[in-house]
Each structure stands twice: as C-alpha cells, then as structure tokens.
Nucleic acid binder design. Structure first.
Lengths: 347, 347
DNA sequence: CCTATATACTGAAACGTTACAGATTGTCAC
DNA sequence: GTGACAATCTGTAACGTTTCAGTATATAGG
C-alpha cells in the first residue's frame, strides 16, 4: 500500500523532488538533502550515490521550496531608472551581470522605477518583500539614501559609482577624475586653451569627480574654463544641441569640449556645426563612449572608453561576494580609462 | 497560553502573513485568504474588514508561498542573446515590458544565452524548472524550435517577430516589408536607380520580409538591385564598413542603400566615405533607427523609426493576455513604420 | 418541530525544502 | 558484557499559501 502510493506520487509529478530521489535511493528525504550539499555526517559512498542519481535524473532544487524554507531567493536585482539610464549602459551592464551569474543558481531581475517615483521606492519594495538576496543600483549620489537604507537593513548591494557618506560598501566606478584630467591634458596638448565641460547631473557623485578632474587639470595646464553648466548629460539631445550652439556663437567661446556621454557628444557636435564652426579646426571634443561608434560619427572626435559590461560583471561579483560573506570593504573597484585615442588631423 | 504563543509568533516575524491577518481580524487563515481574493462565499463586511486591515498593515502575499502551493511564479522572462541583440533594443524592450507589468504582481527576469549555446537551452531551462509564467523571445525564425517547444508544453509566450510554421502564437512585429518598400520608393523618388540592401541575418524571419519588400518595390519602381549579401546587420561594424567600401569602389556601384539597423548605417556611411564618395550626392541611405540619433550623424540620412519600447509593451501585454486566458490568435500585432523623414538637400 | 438548504466560516493537508531532535548501528575501552 | 561515543541515517515540523472537505448557524419549507 505504502509503496504503491509513494510510487504513484513520484510518477505523477513531472519533476523530480527530494522525495523522488529518496524513493529511488531508498534513503530518507533528509539524508538526500544533506548528501546533495556535501554535509559531513553523510557517508562518502551514500553521498556519491545520491549525487549520481540526482545528476542522472536531472534533479534541480525547487526554488520556491528553498525560498520559503530558508528565505534565500537566489535573485539579484538590478534597479534601473527607466527614463535617465544611458541606453548602452542597460544592455551592457545586464550582460556583464549575466556573465557572472551564469554558472550560479542566481536569476537576474530588473526592477525599474520612473521619474515620478522616489528612487528609494523600488529599494524599499525589494527589502520589505525580501525579493532579492542582493541589489545593484546605479546613479549613485554622494549622500545616497538607498545605500544608507540597505546598509541599515543589512542587505548586500553594490553601487555603480561611489558614495561619500563615510560608509563602506561595495562599488564599482569608472575613474572619471582621471578621464577628465586626461581629456583636458590632451586638449591642451593640441593647443586648446578655453575648455567647456558637459558634466554629469550635479546630484550624482561622478559629477564632482569629473568636475574636479577637469578643474585640477585646467590649472595644471594653465587653460581656462568656459562655463557650460546649464545642461548636463541628462538633458535632451535637443537641449544640449541648442545650448551648445548658443555657446559657440558667443564672443568668448570654447575651443575644446569634454563630454561625459556619447549621445550628448552627438548633440554637442551638432550644436557646433549649427553655429557654423568646424570640429577639429575651430574646436576639439573629447568624449567618453561605451561602444566603439563615435569615431564613425566624426573621425576628429577624441574618445575614451568606459566598459559597462565590465562594470556589470564587477558589480555582480561584488554582490555575490558580499552574499558569500566577504567583507564589503574588500569589494570595491575602480576602472581606469583606456587612453585618449590619437588625434587624427583632418585630411 | 495559546494566545501568548500566537502573538509572539506574529510579533517575531517582521512581515505580516495570512496568520497575522487572521489573528488581527479574529478569523481563520482560510477565510482571510479567500476574503483577500474576493471569493463569493465570504460575507461582504468581513471581506471589507479583512481588506482594510491588510491594506493598513501593508500585507503582501509571500511569493514563495504562492509559488510553492500553486506553481504560479508571477514572473515573465525575457530571453536575450548576449552577443547579437541590438543595444537599444535591450533597454527599450525592457522598459516597455516594465511599463506594462508595473502595476501587476509580475517580476521581469532576464534570461541570457550566448553564441555558443543552443537558443533552445534557456527555454528548456525555463520550462523544465517552471521558472516563469510567460516568456518573451526575440530573433525569431521562420521555423522556430523555441516557439514550437513552448507551444507543445503549453507555456504562454510571445515572439518579437513572426514565425512561419503554420502555428498560431502571440507576436509583435515591425512591418519590415512596409519599411523596405517605402525606403525603396523614397530612394526612387529622389532619382536613385541602383539600390543595395543591408539585410537582417538570413535565419531570422524578418530577413525575408525585408527582402521581399525590397525586391517588390524595386520592380514596382523599375530600379535594380546591387547585391550586397555578403554581410548582414549581425556583422561587425568593421566588416560592414569594409564591404561597403569595396562595393562602392566597383564600376557598377549602388546609388542608394537600405539599411536595417542604425549601427550598421554608421558603418555603411563610413564605408561610402572611405571610397571617397559623398552621402547625399553620390548615394543616399535610408535606415531604420530606434532612437532619434541618426540625423545628428549625417543630416542627409533618411530614417524610419522603429519603436522598441512599444514592442516591449505589446509583447508583455500579449504574454499577460495569454496567461489571463485570452486566445493566442487575438494577441498578435504589427506596427507600421512611421514615415521616411523628408530629405533635406545638402547646403 | 424537524429537515433541507444556503451562508459564512474553519481546520487539515499539501506544495518542496531544511533544521531540529532524535534513532539505530557499530566500535572501543574497561 | 556494559557504557560511552562516533558515525550514519531518519521523522517531524515549519516556512506561507491555497484547496478540500468539512462545521456551525440561520433561514425557509413542510
């Protein structure tokens, strides 16, 4: 009776469970469970036997069962702003994260939030509902309530970009200070003296990194700044284009630009040309880019590469590291810009 | 005694459960469960009372509990090729999907697969492990094993792009036939007679849609085709650029291009210019784009817009519709190109 | 007054997993 | 031969939910 019933139970459900394995091996469910996770109190042979059978029939632990029992979700959440995120950032960072979690049990869920919402909302949701074991956030601010909140709750996370609150947490950042200084030095090297910076939005930490690098290098090389802070890389293409054109029609206009984003650079160049000036002759532009396309746009553009896929991979590694018990302080990384491309004079 | 214990249980765990609600309302767990889902056999007042309390204390059903009991995951999976997917496609489609599932209990998980893998692998994984209630796939083929597989298993899905297997399933597609015909007509309208097509990869369904539109319109307007099928939009920028330059140096060279992707268009233009020819004078290019950037690249470019965010939203709606019991046949949509932008003659 | 029926509610069981607290052996010291 | 102990293994309960099979009460029909 008993056996018949058990058999039927196992046959009926398509997917093997611990019970199936227990039946097949003649062991108890508990033993099977522990054998699969290499618990020491299970005999070596039993362990091998269970693992063999499990592999043979393609056993995979039921995520809901594990999650209900242990609270472990095996989920990493990537939190994204649906309006302001850089396009290539989204795909590259996702692929970077994917690459790292590919041979782990982790799934990647994307948690979006929009302009209208408090950026803390999605984080609160994730933490309150226990929807993820780890979180990755971008658009990091010097005093970031999201980081503070997660630190308080003890949920592992990593930020793309640094904070400046005296709190330690994993991050990955691109060295925007180095980017800006190299950009300025390069422009000075080809004779540019009046430089404008299209900066990141003020509220984000890398705004000041970029700005500091820019102004430090400016005084180092003895060049001057033409203020261009009515727009940031967050503004629309049209806005940036218009403002650039306005700026370039002024008496004292820049002869060099440093741009923190590739799409914005397209707008800057358009604005320059709207004003009847020529890139490479009247003005030079150094831009960050994440895909290798800007040099097709105008060969005179000077580019510095930022690798978002790498960022995604690093962020994922950090979060997994923290979940795995590593100390947050050891999970910080900074990636250096790969140098300004050599200037090619116009034909 | 009993009460003390119950109270303690509820106090201890931070998050309210049905048990918490049951205790607070003085009802049974079953009643609470049913009251929350508006079951008819619960008294109207009780129902309101339970729902009020639930809202007040911020009750949210435990996903693992629901999933374990019912098998419902409340997850939609977006399956992406980590090498070949168009960059803007990834971010836009994610945002489109997000937009639709925002006020549902659904989460979006991204399931990646790489070049080396069988595209069926991630699908098998999802289905076998029951990881999602619905799936969205892209890079759809005329005879698509993934669609067939999911249809057999009865798991709701939607494809970006159509299949051609005589099987009915939800899809969203851009009308690439219309795109190609309009592109050709426009080029013919401005006097171009020898046209080349940079097509999608042959294995994907929209290759033939595009090609058919191209050739049909070609004979309609009496223009001729210059074969350009050694490359597709899947090839690298460098490859496309090189092939284009080769083509443009030949005696019989195209005076018009139709390009199925924006990034590829950059390469085509670069190739044209490598050959010493000028866009708008020697040759015109019509291109699809998904973000509004190509006109900044070269103002002579003729562009047609494909809205991936809309595609994401439509795909999500389709999958949710299918899950909700709608008939697959009713969940198909085709989006028309928004017209070729007016040609602006060079200054 | 009793029975049938509808209404409103409830406890127990189950989904698959892990943790806790044993239970069953065999080995060894004395 | 007995007790102690280690080595292996096992049953039960619990995580939060829904479903099944009820139970209790009120209402109506006869």
């Amino acid at each position: 009776m008993d056996r018949d019933q058990t058999e039927k139970d196992d046959e009926a459900s398509g997917r093997p469970t611990l019970k199936t394995l227990a039946f097949m091996t003649g062991l108890g469910v508990t033993t099977v469970s522990r054998a699969l996770k290499d618990a020491p109190e299970i005999g070596a042979e039993t362990r091998r036997r269970v693992q063999l059978v499990a592999k043979q029939i393609g056993y995979r632990p039921n995520r809901a069962g594990v999650r209900l029992r242990t609270g472990k979700t095996n989920v990493i959440s990537l939190v994204l702003n649906t309006e302001r995120e850089i396009m290539s950032f989204v795909s590259d960072i996702i692929y970077g994260v994917s690459e790292v979690i590919a041979d782990t049990p982790y799934h990647l869920i994307v948690t979006p939030y929009s302009r209208s919402q408090d950026p803390l909302d999605p984080i609160r949701y994730l933490v309150e509902t226990g929807s993820a074991d780890g979180v990755i956030i971008s658009r990091t601010q010097p005093n970031d309530p999201r980081a503070r909140y997660m630190l308080e709750r003890g949920i592992p996370f990593a930020t793309h970009g640094r904070t400046d609150m005296g709190l330690i947490h994993p991050y990955h950042d691109f060295d925007n200070y180095a980017f800006a200084t190299e950009a300025v030095r390069h422009l000075a090297g080809i004779g540019r003296r009046r430089l404008a910076l299209l900066a990141p939005p003020v509220e984000l930490t890398y705004h000041s990194h970029t700005l500091n690098g820019f102004t430090d290098a400016l005084s180092e090389v003895g060049a001057s700044e033409i203020p261009f802070n009515t727009v940031s890389v967050d503004h629309s293409i049209e806005q940036i284009r218009m403002r650039t054109a306005q700026l370039m029609r002024r008496d004292v206009r820049p002869d060099g630009f440093v741009s923190s984003a590739a799409a914005a650079t397209l707008a800057i160049v358009a604005g320059i040309e709207d004003a009847g000036l020529k890139l490479g002759r009247d003005v030079d532009v150094v831009s960050k880019q994440s895909s290798d396309l800007l040099h097709l746009f105008r060969r005179e553009l000077l580019v510095v590469n930022e690798n978002f896929r790498l960022a995604g991979a690093e962020l994922a590694r950090s979060v997994l590291g923290w979940i795995g018990g590593a100390t947050p302080g050891s999970l910080r990384s900074l990636s250096k810009p790969t140098g300004v491309l050599a200037y090619r004079p116009p034909d």
